[in-house]
Nucleic acid binder design. Sequence first.
DNA 1: GAGCACTGC
Length: 679
Amino acid sequence: MADLDLDSSFIPALHKPPSLLPIAKHRESLLYVVETFPITIVIGQTGSGKSTQIPQFLERAGWCSDGKIIGPRRVAATTVALRVADEVGCEIGKEVGYSIRFEDVTSSSTRIKFLTDALLIREALADPLLSRYSVIMVDEAHERSISTDILLGLLKKIRKKRPELRIIVSSATLQAEEFLNFFAKGAGQESQEEGNGQPPRDIATIVSLEGRTYPIDTLYLESPAEDYVEKAVGTVFDIHTQEGEGDVLVFLTGREEIDNAIQAVAERAAGLDGRHGALQPLPLYAGLSTEQQMYVFDKPPEGTRKVVFSTNIAEASVTIDGIVHVIDCGFVKLRAYNPRTGIETLTTTPISKASASQRAGRAGRTKAGKCYRLYTEDAYQALPETNPPEIQRSNLASTILQLKALGIDNVVRFDFLSAPPSELMSKALELLYSLGALDEYAKLTQPLGSRMAELAVEPMMAKTLLSAPQFNCLSEMLTIAAMTSLGGNVWFHHDGERGKMESCRRKFAAEEGDHLTLLNVYQTFVTKGKKEAKFCHDHNLNYKSMTRAISIRAQLKRYLERFNISADETPSSNSQQPSAAADRSKKAESIRRCLTSGYFAHAARMQPDGTYRNVEGGTTLHAHPNSLMFNRKADWVVFHEIMETGEKTYIRDITKIEKNWLVEYAPEYYKLSNFTPRA
DNA sequence: GAGCACTGC
């Protein structure tokens, strides 16, 4: 392992960020701008206080005096709302409240409401002009989630009918101009039509707020690293032996790299000179249980340096105090969707300049810091400004369905901030048509299509749920829908406990496949396990995920009750009579049939070599090692998810079905001519 | 016999 010397191997960046100042002195100009321009783009660094201060400025300036509510949104709506309530001096849920998926903490007196963008879109289903709000602030818009993009398009549309509405968009520097142009484009002609001619440039303006962060020295490699994991580990030791106090945050791309790096640090630390303190390497990624994640927030013992090896979760979602050194490998795993094959990929990709600066910023939150980029300055210059927005690389079925439900019939002409490729649109439209959510004129069907749009699960599962009453398995399907939407985070294991986890999983195994296994897990958790953390702990189940499943199930059930569809929740009999086994198998068949009615587009057949092939026959599919069907025999199956990682394409959450069910439930989709997959 | 980055309704 080649040692590197910090002084020679890293060279300083040519440009340094200016020193930064707090928001208060911008109050007057900010209020003036909001008064004057319908749309304000706010450039605010982390630490500028924009999310907490701007709503308060506006409220005090009378923007809520007629009882309307300022509605910013934020990923961490709860945290920000609690802080603002504290600053205002009110009880949370009174003047200041928040609303997130499972929690509405607002009241009739709420004047400042924090909510997520996805939830605001949901409100638009019932109140298309969002008439309760006088000012809407779209926070962290540069993150460009699908729902942010959709919301911005909706707001632009709403503004035509509600010229008095004020829109604030907060963004990082790089993308501000794009937002400005988006709102300015087309605004001139409309106001002319409406006869109150406002030239585009009077529609929107940019305000720049400075944040309170500390200077960060950025260092680059002189020559590219061959193995960035090894380079990261080497840099950790160089920092530890050559730099003063301060914890280290290392950005890597995934669990495997993180585990390897931690092991390497542990091995090399043994040979560390005694006069340097100890090193405490810690992992951080979303798949960890809550308690495993909590370690990264603990203060390390005196004289010990904490080194957090993290995925992108630490870039924007999780903030760790006391970080002085950031090591950035320059890569991230990005999800993309191929509309031609219908396969999602998860690929290691170079980060954008925007990400690089966000990562570096994690070093300067408590005092001056340093960022070590494990790439050259030339490589940095070659990075894209931003990564393509999510809406241009995702399966858009649920997005299109939602737009239709919002009354946007011509989705192709919707004013997208960045229009998605047409193949993504047509693929989504085709699927929605085959599920019966859209008719042959691409209109939302009633009641199926609009009900599917309201359910908070992806369209294939929504269809499955809405078919469940016909198959007499709604109660079971509610559970399966909740469990599959946990996204593979049901099980967890500590180091070296993989075998134990596998044997726990086998205890719940159902012969028919993963969906029925998940059903067993949930049912045992709520009955025998009494919904307790101890049960999860004893069975290597992720408690946070299991409680989440309970909430999701309850919410889905409420949605269905709103459609006057109610589930029979009488527990299945545990009788020892011979008929019990037959009943169970009959129920299992109903569930498998029901799954087929929604997941017929995700069908595959096992080949003699044990791999799977879907109906088009193109790609070799492998049962995911976490699936019960891994190394088990089957003929036809349906699966929840398909994803390509590295060399292989995996299918996850797999259940055995009968071939003729596909023709029975999706006759149009399965024309007999193309039914048999190629060998 | 080998593995999923992250949000969110």
